[in-house]
């Protein structure tokens, strides 16, 4: 079946098998592999995208559900070829190791700061509690969010 959607502002269309997730279609059919396939059951947040402006796991959105909707992936966060300040902060704070969780965490942190410009530590922890990281123990990820928030 055919679906049409906007990814990072660009209109896209794809022929999909009805059982495919939005994650699969982004990665394998539309050329946006930035969202990651870590658990495919909504338990790790690595595939996080903004779906009509809301933070969701793209592995749990049926591709056909995205027909006519807007998706922003990690590839679409920067502007004019510059990194988003959250992306810069992740690099500067050492919040990246293997990096497999990073795209999802960056999207989740961008979503947090969009709703709460200066979150406290508890708010950062709760906002990122749907994103697993196996490498960092999270400390430098929290540093990065604080750095990006300027707090």
């Amino acid at each position: 079946m055919r679906i049409e959607l906007r990814v990072n502002g660009e209109p896209c269309e794809a022929d999909v098998w009805a059982g495919e997730s939005l994650l699969y279609v982004l990665r394998e059919r539309l050329g946006y592999p930035g969202s990651k396939n870590a658990c495919e059951q909504g338990e790790c947040g690595s595939c996080s995208v903004l779906y009509d402006g809301k933070l969701v796991c793209s592995c749990l959105v049926l591709a056909a559900q995205a027909d006519g909707h807007q998706v922003v992936t990690v590839e679409g966060l920067g502007e004019d070829g510059r990194l988003h300040r959250v992306q810069e902060a992740f690099v500067a704070a050492g919040a990246v190791q293997c990096g497999f969780c990073t795209p999802g965490l960056v999207v989740a942190a961008v979503d947090l700061l969009a709703h709460n410009a200066s979150p406290n530590d508890d708010e950062i922890r709760e906002a990122l509690s749907g994103n697993l990281c196996r490498c960092t123990g999270y400390a430098k990820i929290f540093d990065a969010v604080r750095l990006a928030a300027g707090t």
Partner: peptide, 12 residues
């Protein structure tokens, strides 16, 4: 900073 930091935060 990691030499692969920017590709990793941008999904590249």
């Amino acid at each position: 900073p990691r030499e692969d930091g920017i590709p990793k935060v941008t999904g590249q």
